[in-house]
Design a protein around this nucleic acid. Structure first.
Lengths: 140, 140
DNA sequence: TCAAATTGATAAGTGCACGTATCAATTCAG
DNA sequence: CTGAATTGATACGTGCACTTATCAATTTGA
């Protein structure tokens, strides 16, 4: 068992833990919005009129994945998608009123989940971890 | 854009980066074995005769996922699966000779990839990161 | 001892995550 | 100005990752 203490394995375990905490907290609060969907909502809220490729670039996903994520957000009534008249290839995205309201209610829960994710670390360790993580991630 | 600097998002980006480095290195070397498949091979090599549930527990996956991973390893001829006569529910797993040989050739490449994954960190930062990651992951 | 609980495996379904390919729309270069 | 390259979106395929459900085999406990 050499794999267990490799960086890649630890990072995967962290990601697994992070996802489980996120899902548990948001479900408890009555939401059915995955972390990718939340990130997409956040990007669209901050950049109304952005297109799908823009969202993908902002939150570091590939376009096919984001296309399907947006599909789910549209079918949940949280996002509206329209053809951009200036560039007819692009789909202009905006939060619906329900999307705005849902995001506002979800945000504090997601924030709280972040503390829980690093709940095994002391406050100064959390800061150190976040700084190291930021450095380790390649620029783009 | 509040999500970008949240712990969950940083961890996801790290995981994405880690997977990309692993995949690039192993593909370059001519292998088609994912990181989960490698972890499973490692667990089976270290514990010949282990069953699927044992592998899942060791490397922290759910049983259905590991079942499919083992399927792929069996169809690649790297693992053999037999019914355990002592407990006929269980499938006893072992590396085939090809599995042994493949693992031996793959191991140094995977090890090298671990350094590359944390390539943006200085040596002492890597140690610190690994220690914080270990602490952050829940006990079991 | 035998019904109940547990355990190992698998099936079915959802949702990423990414590579590759394709198509349409736009931009750019000669 | 027009053919080539680029860009936005989508389709398709693979491989996780997990939940829930089901079934069979085993263990257990009254």
């Amino acid at each position: 068992m050499q794999a267990l203490d490799m960086a890649g394995h630890l990072i995967r375990r962290l990601h697994q833990h992070s996802t489980q905490v996120y899902t548990a907290r948001t479900r408890e609060a009555g939401f059915d919005i995955t972390s990718v969907q939340f990130a997409a909502l956040d990007a669209i809220k901050a950049n109304p009129g952005i297109d799908q490729a823009g969202v993908a670039a902002l939150i570091a996903y590939d376009r096919p994945t984001i296309g399907e994520v947006i599909n789910r957000l549209v079918s949940k009534g949280l996002v509206e998608r329209a053809i951009n008249d200036a560039d007819r290839r692009a789909r202009v995205l905006r939060l619906t009123p329900l999307g705005e309201e849902t995001f506002a209610r979800l945000l504090p829960i997601v924030r709280e989940a972040q503390n829980a994710i690093l709940g095994n670390l002391a406050p100064d360790e959390r800061t150190a971890f976040m700084a190291l993580a930021r450095s380790a991630i390649p620029a783009e």
